[in-house]
Design a binder for these strands. Sequence first.
DNA 1: CGTCGTATTGATCGTGCTCAACAGTCGTGG
DNA 2: CCACGACTGTTGAGCACGATCAATACGACG
Lengths: 247, 247
Amino acid sequence: MTDRASCLVSKLGHYISLSEDDRQRLSTLEKSERSYGAGTDIYQMDDPCTDLFVVKQGWLFSYNDLPDGSRQIVKLHLPGDIIGFPDVSQKHVTSTLCAAEDVVLCPFPKTALDVILRDSPRLSALILSIALRDQIILLDLLRALGSMTARARISYMLLDLLARLKITNKGMSDVLRLPLNQSQIAAYVGLTNVYVSKTLSRMEKDGDIARTGNTVHLLRPEAMEEATDFRDRYSDMDIGWFPANKV
Amino acid sequence: MTDRASCLVSKLGHYISLSEDDRQRLSTLEKSERSYGAGTDIYQMDDPCTDLFVVKQGWLFSYNDLPDGSRQIVKLHLPGDIIGFPDVSQKHVTSTLCAAEDVVLCPFPKTALDVILRDSPRLSALILSIALRDQIILLDLLRALGSMTARARISYMLLDLLARLKITNKGMSDVLRLPLNQSQIAAYVGLTNVYVSKTLSRMEKDGDIARTGNTVHLLRPEAMEEATDFRDRYSDMDIGWFPANKV
DNA sequence: CGTCGTATTGATCGTGCTCAACAGTCGTGG
DNA sequence: CCACGACTGTTGAGCACGATCAATACGACG
């Protein structure tokens, strides 16, 4: 992936081989890239939904504030991710997007999707598949939040992040940079910052993880996967049924 | 909707007007319909994923059993729903499907999707939108499980079910038939059967709901929506960006 | 009548929350 | 240079929501 390459092309080309036509189609979609500083809210809940974003650099998250003052982070966005897909089905976006650190995004208009659907069945299938896989992952997270202990939830989050990073970075070890503070982790897994701190300390004392700065080292990933019934949904998408493009 | 009409046609025709070609395409997809008794597991987790189902009659749910013995219901399926969409992206299904009562389903093969993607951009867009909307709804549920009290979670579930039933049944009142026992409700909202019982009793005593048999009457839906920050995602899907079919 | 599945109610326990104090690390400004 | 504040993480004490375990009630069905 050169720096000049289209974010979309390199992201989607990761799953299937793209025809030259498809590459062209995708490249033209992207507007110029944009940078945002850490902590910036890039769009707010209930804003009109016009653009999608590919993450070129940095982590972000989508959150909602609830009436009782608590905050729930519903999705973490890592480099290579497409942000805002579910909102395409709605007139207004359903959550607020916030940069967890300094980020670079490649926006492209929501209306671009109709061109793809009209002209490229193969790309359409891929996009649909990605959307559906994201839904699977959400279901997994739901199980975690619905019925796991604090420790299992945090383990689950760490395993999920590691699996995601390994898609684009094959030779990766079990070390993880985690550019989120404990309040944000808490908002994601449905706990409080205090209890996240206590749980992480306990996990460290028990030898499950090691921490240095904001990097986390998973010392027994297999045991953690066992305990949380973790499954890697990222590595085995089914793309066998995709249609060929028309000629 | 006549009894003979294709389930898919009547389901999808609810959102957009379908061309005669599209109606034909959809009708041919469906195999004969099938019935299952209450409590039947229709497919099991890790089975190969071959078919999707349209619900013609009765309620169902998808669940997973966790290593600690607890069960999490991740999705309730009502008449008119399409079951198994997210699993299309996977080689094996990720949860077990169970009939909550006697049901009738219309199966159609997963491979049918490639025909639609190739030939009908408009139907493709609709299917994508439905998948994405389901994801939004999952995100809503995630917020509920992540940071709401027992009472709010149950309220949320009731509001969600009511909104779903109102799509196909416009003139509906705030009365709801709930063919689930309290253990199933508990598995869905992440509580125990005991606490569901206690919470429902308290809600009844406080005048929020009334129960007779397995029907529930919501007495102050607006107050409940306020308390749970409930939003109806079903009634305002954005279909404005859909492409027209090629001629 | 007995059994099974389901709902209710009570007593007790524990995980995780609340509130609070304190420490470490920044960047800022005197 | 130090003082100060803002932000983050840690630790402790007490509390509450919801879990666990158990007993009871109730209906449907054989």
